[in-house]
Design a protein around this nucleic acid. Structure first.
Lengths: 196, 196
DNA sequence: GTCTATAGAGGGATAGAC
DNA sequence: GTCTATCCCTCTATAGAC
């Protein structure tokens, strides 16, 4: 092993870490193979030993983000009563979208065209099942798809509008809390009454 | 006027129309000055007589979209009782995002960095005021910012998740209607009780 | 007002040497 | 596994002729 003309500098993890930093710091358009290579101190072509294309790399980032988001949501809800758990989960979800806006955007735009077999265990599906679980504890229905859709819709909508700067200088006031209260009330009311 | 070596083929309206068709048919990345020129049967440089840059053109498209969306929402709510009007408005909003997904995306990503003086009468603000008006009729508060934020958040979140294909093959079930019901109930309950 | 021609910059990806 | 070198493509925008 005396000759090492080109010693290994990269690993898939190192590339992903640098890509994540670059993405969060400068946005998706700045995440080019050239810029990423510069950040890692290698030549662009070296990256293709670890990711066969930029698109594959982006999907890996998105999958990783989905799992991290799920973990933070689950941790926040841990040990709390159903309604408090959902509120904490919502706040954790929002906190993630604020600290990782570009990763979060990747998460929802790169969830398409999968081979359907593995779609059941995709990171996005795992996140969905986590929300479903927390909601079931409040509404009493362990498969309360309707409320889960409404809840996720609300969380994503708020994160998205906030990131786009739509709320403007006046801010969203207490719209987030008010909307959650409306949804939670509805979950509690309809829960024991069965499906309408 | 016997010599017309290069007769006028374009107008700002014609360019906008073609741009809108190209955008909706093939997505934002396909809306390049080259492709737009091809669609109009002219050379790319000719477009710059009517729009000084691609960004200016995109903003014009977005502003136009915001006004069209507002019109459709307002028309749908016309003559209905407060709660029915809000439901109709929500359905009209969603119908627009389904028929013009890419225009709708422009609407919310190009609302930034304005000269603040004209921000009060921007198309986005006009749309916001329309929602605020309809909500005031149900909650009794003519400036019910919190519920308006929650309502818009929900509409945008649903449109966005649907467009991203997040709901998957099973679809959102009745999550849309359930979420709206929760929000409307909350508006009615809190309306006469004053702000919490 | 449209044309030709081009400047000027950027990107993804590959072949073959080491 | 990384390197050099390069191919190929994309795009926005401008100068000056007509």
């Amino acid at each position: 092993m005396f000759f090492m003309p080109y010693p290994a500098k990269l690993s898939a993890e190192a590339v992903l870490d640098a890509a994540q930093r670059l993405l969060e710091h400068s946005g998706p358009d700045a995440l080019t193979m050239r810029a990423l290579a510069d950040a890692l101190g290698v030549r662009p072509s070296s990256l293709y030993r670890h990711f066969s294309s930029r698109e594959v790399l982006l999907r890996a980032l998105g999958d990783q983000a989905a799992l991290n988001l799920k973990d933070q949501v689950l941790d926040a809800a841990e040990g709390l009563a159903p309604r408090a758990a959902l509120l904490a989960a919502a706040q954790a979800y929002l906190a993630y979208t604020r600290t990782h806006p570009h990763l979060y955007a990747l998460l929802l735009t790169k969830e398409n065209d999968l081979p359907l077999e593995h779609l059941q265990h995709s990171p996005g599906k795992i996140l969905w099942n986590t929300l479903l679980l927390l909601i079931g504890r409040l509404s009493g229905d362990p498969d309360d798809t309707d409320h889960a859709v409404a809840f996720w819709t609300f969380l994503h909508g708020f994160a998205s509008l906030e990131a786009a700067g739509t709320f403007g200088q006046s801010g969203p006031k207490r719209g987030f809390e008010v909307g959650l209260e409306a949804l939670f009330n509805h979950m509690e009311e309809v829960g024991q009454a069965g499906k309408s």
